[in-house]
Design a protein around this nucleic acid. Sequence first.
DNA 1: TACGATGTGATTGAATCCAATTGCAAGAGA
DNA 2: TCTCTTGCAATTGGATTCAATCACATCGTA
Lengths: 223, 223
Amino acid sequence: MKVAKTEHGASAHRIADGLRESILAGEVGPGERVRQEMVAAQYGASRVPVREALRILEAEGLVTLVANTGAWVSRLSLAECEELYQIRERLEPLLLRFSIPNLSGEKIAELHRLAFAMETGTDVEAFLRLDRDFHWLSYSDADTNVLGETVQRLWNATQHYRRAFTRLFTIDAHRTVHQEHHLIVHAIEQRDVDDAERVLYGHIRRTRLELARHPQLFDHADN
Amino acid sequence: MKVAKTEHGASAHRIADGLRESILAGEVGPGERVRQEMVAAQYGASRVPVREALRILEAEGLVTLVANTGAWVSRLSLAECEELYQIRERLEPLLLRFSIPNLSGEKIAELHRLAFAMETGTDVEAFLRLDRDFHWLSYSDADTNVLGETVQRLWNATQHYRRAFTRLFTIDAHRTVHQEHHLIVHAIEQRDVDDAERVLYGHIRRTRLELARHPQLFDHADN
DNA sequence: TACGATGTGATTGAATCCAATTGCAAGAGA
DNA sequence: TCTCTTGCAATTGGATTCAATCACATCGTA
């Protein structure tokens, strides 16, 4: 199947956006090779803007480039993934701190709804989407320039493993996640930034420790 | 003057490295335009690898690209600079935590020497170099993949403003910096990671608060 | 004189073409 | 049969060439 996504122009940015979406959606998994010619054909462009797009994605940690050899969708070791989570533990509470004072009552109500909506669903993709929506909404009024994008990159870089990980959630693990989400909303409601930081820190940290109990997620085949 | 820096090959990475060094050394300052043709000629290459190099530096926050318009050395507002410092406050203590258990006695001795050496110098460039050497040595045995590079990018992105800022240091400000460095070394010596984190957090935080007292550093002319 | 439209030069963006490097496979030799 | 060498095909990297966009200056008009 060959979809002509973009009519005429196929700037490096558009290609980067498209490739990013493909990777985040799981259409191409970690370790899979990305051939310049292929994506060039897919986007109706030449290889030059594709190379620029690959540089962009490399900087985001989504793609790994090896000189004169090729590009692969980045593969994380368990240690690297834990590292990214530890960075998130430190940065996301800060981002939430910036956002809380500016969050409107409507947005807090929406956070409530999202936290409840997640409890009913069972689909993995729906869970991932709602979880992302929830946290992002909680960050959405942070008046920052670089911190938000940094956090976004951290989420993107670990997206694939979060998906795989979520499939292994037990009922209890799910319940804990939901409880923590409600605690976060409560702290936001009270405008208690310190408590919100604490809860969010623990939320991410607990997820990391849970993740470390599934090292098999990182036993990649060598393809 | 036309210097053929690289004999034959002028890969995108080499150009990126060279440009990065030029920016960090202050040879080109924030707000200055970077013309593709210029750097291409400077490195004896065509504009294609230059564009890739600019993408790399853009991702590092050193260069700002505007479509169909051009590239400029990134300029920070006071708010952005403070944001970067706040990120550093959260991440560098973590990085130090990873490094401390692995630091050898020789390296700790070298940290002592660097902390003392900084007290004697008066040159701004020497101070910057020693300060960087000091902190980097303290991080050098952290067994991390992404955290170290993240911190490095944060340092690079703020390098120019640190240079300008250092020139405004009072004698007292210098003394405080040196005292904090000695405290850091002491904590490392005791292998007290919690104390080291605390001291380093305060060290960066205090610098940020000091920085905020010099908003004129960010009053850029519009060129 | 101030303001807006238009055209031109300069610069960036992308396509095509050519060179260089890599990985693999086939074959020779021990 | 195993290993090392050698050559070819596939793929990436870079130079050149062509197209598109933007900024600025010039001119015209109110």
